[in-house]
Simulated scan of single mutants.
Amino acid sequence: MRTPVIAGNWKMFKTVEESREYFRTFQPLGQKEGVETVLCVPYPSLPELVEAARETDIGIGAQNMHWEEEGAFTGEVSPTMLKGLHVSHVIVGHSERRTHFAETDESVRLKTRSALDHGLTPIVCVGETLEEREKERTRDVVRNQVVQALKGLSSEEATQTILAYEPVWAIGTGKASTAEDAGEVIGFIRQTVEEQFDSRAAERVRILYGGSVKPANVDSFLDIPDIDGGLVGGASLDPETFGQLVSAASARRERP
């Protein structure tokens, strides 16, 4: 059985004080039976929220990291630093990192490998741009991103990652992919994992949908058997709205 995941990505929002206030409201809403809840927040808020979540089942994740443990990388944060804060997850390869900060498939691979080596769960993002979609290159783009990100991992390590399909054209635009389209691509991702590893890895790896997920449409995505939850941007910034998404995932039927 795959446990659904609802992960929030705050991007560059919320001060430490705002994070503290958010968590006071969200804590009772974010702990639901049968769902893994994660908040991926800016670096300054990590210590505060890790401490606040210590006695809860809510995971606290970072939004990025460098793959090296230390070195002359001004402005970067290492996996050992995150581990020292008791962070549980880290987003890897978000499209905004690829677009604005020159992330490549190779850097995504290195970060995925490093996260696993340091006991962090990588949430690996893949997805096509609008131009790539219009040229009917979605499968080629997504397959290459998945294969490159998981390259060199064992089958067991592949199952320890969380993949997130985020069509770039749907992120922060209010335009969500249809559940059917998202399910088709995520099914293809699962098939890609099977070809790269084996059927066991494909059955066990959790794959999320991201891109304008909100309470009004979350059920349609969760009803697709291959979709194991959501990586949520804007809707995660309000604790009550995000809590509704966690509740929706908790209420979903069990799936193999």
Rank of each mutant, 00 (worst) to 15 (best):
R2L: 05
T3A: 11
I6T: 06
G8N: 07
N9I: 14
K11W: 04
T15K: 09
T15P: 12
E17K: 07
S19F: 07
S19I: 00
F26S: 02
Q27D: 03
P28H: 09
L29N: 05
L29I: 07
Q31Y: 09
K32V: 11
K32C: 05
C40Y: 10
V41R: 02
T56D: 10
I60N: 09
I60S: 05
G61H: 02
N64Y: 15
M65T: 08
M65Q: 03
V77Y: 13
P79A: 13
M81Y: 11
L82W: 08
L85W: 03
I91C: 14
G93K: 09
H94D: 05
S95V: 04
R97G: 02
H100A: 15
F101C: 03
F101T: 05
F101P: 11
F101I: 07
E106Y: 05
T112Y: 03
H118G: 14
V124A: 09
C125P: 06
E136G: 01
E136I: 10
R137M: 15
N144C: 08
V147I: 10
L150V: 06
K151D: 13
Q160K: 09
I162N: 02
P167H: 15
P167Y: 13
G172E: 03
G172V: 01
G172I: 10
A182R: 13
Q191D: 07
E194F: 01
E195N: 02
S199G: 09
Y209F: 10
G210M: 02
V213Y: 00
K214I: 08
D219K: 11
D228Y: 11
L231F: 01
G233D: 13
G234Q: 04
S236C: 09
D238E: 15
F242K: 07
F242S: 14
V246N: 01
R252Q: 02
